[in-house]
Amino acid sequence: MRAVILILAAAALLALPFAAQAAGQPALITLATRIAVYAIAAASLNFILGYGGMVSFGHAAFFGLGAYTVGVMFHHAGAGPMFGLIPGTTHLLVTIPLALAVSGLAAAAIGALSLRTGGVQFIMITLAFAQMLFFLFVSLTTYGGEDGLIIRRPNEFLGLNLRDRVTMYYVALGFAAAFFLILWRIVHSSFGAVIQGIRQNERRMAALGYAPYRYKLAAFVLSGMGCGLAGALMANVLRFTSPDLMHWTKSGELIVMVILGGLGSFFGPVFGAAAFLILETYLAGWSEHWPLALGAILLVIVLFTRGGVAGLIARIGGALQR
């Protein structure tokens, strides 16, 4: 049953650009690309938030770092090496691993410090680090400061033209598929089990001989790397990167996506990212005052539903089986 659903979903995702063009809605392709990219970021956050119980309010920092890796490398490919040492590059096969390394290192540093606290202090300290990076990039005039960096040409990747929105969609979809495959392996590994055990009872896991701090830090780093990957892809989709990508409201939006999709459900973030971006796109087209409606919808979801969209689907599925 599950395999059938997966195959149907994959077929639908592969056929989406043709359907969109046939329906005369090419803008849908870009929307779907953004959903695929944000699904990666939201699922990364969900890994520590839903499975690990760590409420990070600063994950936009890693998203932004991934995007800036692509932007800065593009900048130096034209303007000469960084610090006269590090040459720029426009190859996706270089920028993606680099974005993973940069966001991973940043997550290791931020996580190592933040995980010494817990509860509300953890929420606030992750927010603080993200704000520091935000202001750092605002002040870097070389990279556009507040206005951000325009990436005139998207990265080169296996001779594909990433400016073409259908091609970019398939590339993003491919990365998302690979990402979710790896995430599936991680969540269902013994490491994933330890992480979920720590959420349920940290003291008991410690008593069982697992050092919670080290496991949490490893999960935090992986989660940061996932957001970095999403950011690097987003820079190629937008052909632009700016400090707004790491603004604290972006971190809030990522949390909203996770909650909308259903906390700690594997594919929840996909539904959450889709729900959020579709709502945003259509509400924005309907009225410039769309945040009012978005806020109201969000409030109702938080106050009156549990488990988000994935929970809703599970409940409907359960009702149908009965």
Binding site: V55, I255, V256, H289, G295, L298, V302
Partner: peptide
């Protein structure tokens, strides 16, 4: 805390727009 952060985040969106 997560639900509280989200619900009050929603309130910010609504208050600003109002």
């Amino acid at each position: 805390h997560l639900d509280q952060v989200l619900a009050t985040f929603a309130l910010i969106l609504m208050a600003n727009q109002a």
